[in-house]
Design a protein around this nucleic acid. Structure first.
Lengths: 342, 342
DNA sequence: TACAGTTGCTAAACCCATTTAGCACGCCAC
DNA sequence: GTGGCGTGCTAAATGGGTTTAGCAACTGTA
């Protein structure tokens, strides 16, 4: 970048005052005793020259760079959690900050590099984000570094922002209950028996807990639970197909995410069953898919933007807020049918 | 960020040499006449203290911050073009650079703010990206600012990276031709008659041109062209349904993008027609949707990652490369059936 | 009149690096 | 013995801001 910028010295010179005076006036320092006239001259000069402070130079002295480091595994580069970035970017912009975005692919070596890179640039704080909520191990950071975990947790840094999965799980079941569903409900994507030993993520466990607690509270039971290792459409398709072939009377499906639900739609369609007249479906995430499906999929959404937003706000507020749970919004579309009572 | 870092002065002190010597040695300056012993002592000291230079301080002197500004309308925050960011992020990382990511939502005021913000931080260059390739108007930048347009063009800054849509358009038609399709081919999403006056984007025009040139080269004609204003699944569904209801003998669809194709699958499914046995489909973008569909959708992909990558490489190389066209990869899945000749 | 207290402003240090200019020493040649 | 040169290193300037310490002039009070 060539073409030298206007500096504070230029402003001071034009205003006929010292650099000190110019600095104090432009920063609106309260206790200074500079005259109104001095204020006017400096402001006019700055205006006239189009002066903008050099953030790097200022940061050298003040240790504030108005810059946040956003380090994630694959958040920026996959579509699943890009809402996290969106919310964070917006909140940062509103606070007059800017975000350095780095991705590590979850590799420890790149992660260490990323941390060093943002620290070298004197960021005001770091947000660590993961696509799938999980405990994140991060190397030692200089004492005093502000950190917020986003969709992640960490033993040393307690401030973290997570979706309120337990409540979300309850909401999903409640949608079915409110529509009058009492039997023929299957869970697609999770089977506690089979998955006793697998750890998917801290939040999936909570989602399941919420689902089960709402089922129990309503005296309901799943007549089937299909375990799925990967939560992709293909898997949802196979799983639902297998369930259908076992010949049960399926009336409603709780799918662990929208991609599974997408596969379920495909299997149901092939079997000549219609959503929601024959089978109601409720799911999680509010993936863009959910709106594309016919009929639209009713789902309990991941509040990614709100989470990203809160992470930045917490980071800049500097307080240790512990775990902040963001409510998961219920997005009603047309995949749940009312069941006549009786 | 508290906890003061190790500075060059610390290293110099520990090595028993001047700061000058330490700086020169750590930067590997060639013409210096410092002794091997001095080199060893400085390197050891830096190692021992875990010294990392303060990029901001260095940038103040050298005008290089190893930081790139990435300003886009909605690239980071929607899933459609996040590949652009991914490629750029990777290339930046490989070059030891870091990216400041800002989004403007396409609003001129936010754009001006974004430009000022990255300029205030002395970035080494700026990449302007758009989700839908288009001519982008940007305010005056200081002379000498390095700029690359990504998936966009600009009158003043000529270096831009775009998908090779014309060739991509040809590829799509060629897939059908190679499979033996000669008739019953419809175009979904574009009708030159209707859309004579609408400007979608520079690249859509090229895509269409490529499609038409390949059709002409093979002596083929579309028997129908469905214009669609928005390219969403819902629109693709309606459009295809309308086409089907007109009772033509549809054998193949060229869809302008994967979301339209998604809707086409739904309409075809409802009409009891199977892909690809009854109707073959080829499309564009290689959206993640394409892999979710059953059968998988054959599509000509947007090479977003490669584009992002090239944009960073061009920016850092500093040369004016004009328009760089990145080939669109053909992604073969199962939505095109072979037609028996005769 | 003299001393203290305000008022209005500035010189200089500082942040952390890079870079320019140049010093001190040893050696060689004449 | 001295001018010239190569060797090995450093003091100080620089980049663009913020901040501390303090100066000079004026006002008010005893």
């Amino acid at each position: 970048m060539a073409a030298k910028r206007v500096t504070l010295a230029d402003v001071a010179r034009l205003a006929g005052l010292s650099q000190t005076a110019a600095s104090m006036i432009l920063n609106g320092r309260p206790d200074t005793r500079l005259s109104q006239d001095a204020h006017d001259r400096v402001n006019a000069a700055a205006q006239q020259l189009g002066y903008r402070p050099n953030v790097a130079a200022r940061g050298l002295r003040t240790d504030k760079t108005l810059t946040i480091g956003f380090i994630s595994d694959v958040v920026a580069t996959t579509r699943f959690a890009s809402g996290l970035i969106k919310g964070a970017l917006e909140a940062a912009e509103e606070a007059g900050h800017v975000m350095l975005v780095l991705e590590t692919g979850g590799e420890p070596a790149r992660e260490a590099e990323a941390i060093a890179a943002v620290l070298d640039r004197q960021v005001d704080g770091i947000i660590f984000a993961t696509m799938r909520a999980r405990e994140l191990f991060i190397p030692d950071l200089p004492a005093g570094t502000s950190v917020v975990m986003l969709n992640a947790t960490n033993a040393r840094y307690h401030t973290s922002v997570l979706p309120d999965e337990e409540e979300g799980g309850r909401s999903a079941v409640q949608l079915l209950v409110d529509a009058g569903h009492r039997s023929g409900i299957a869970l697609i994507g999770q089977n506690d028996e089979v998955e006793r030993e697998v750890f998917r993520s801290a939040t999936v466990a909570r989602r399941v807990a919420g689902i089960r607690s709402a089922m129990a509270a309503n005296d309901l039971e799943f007549f089937a639970e299909e375990s799925i290792w990967l939560w992709e459409p293909e898997d949802g398709y196979r799983s639902t197909k297998a369930l259908l072939e076992r010949g049960n009377d399926v009336r409603a499906l709780v799918c662990m995410n929208d991609r599974i639900a997408f596969g379920a739609y495909q299997a149901l369609g092939e079997a000549g069953l219609s959503v929601p007249d024959d089978v109601s479906i409720v799911s999680f995430d509010n993936d863009e898919l959910a709106a594309y499906l016919r009929p639209g999929l009713t789902t309990v959404g991941l509040p990614h933007e709100e989470m990203g937003r809160r992470a930045v706000e917490l980071l800049l507020s500097g307080q240790d807020a512990g775990q902040v749970l963001i409510p998961m919004p219920v997005v009603r579309r047309r995949s749940i049918a009312e069941v006549p009572q009786g």
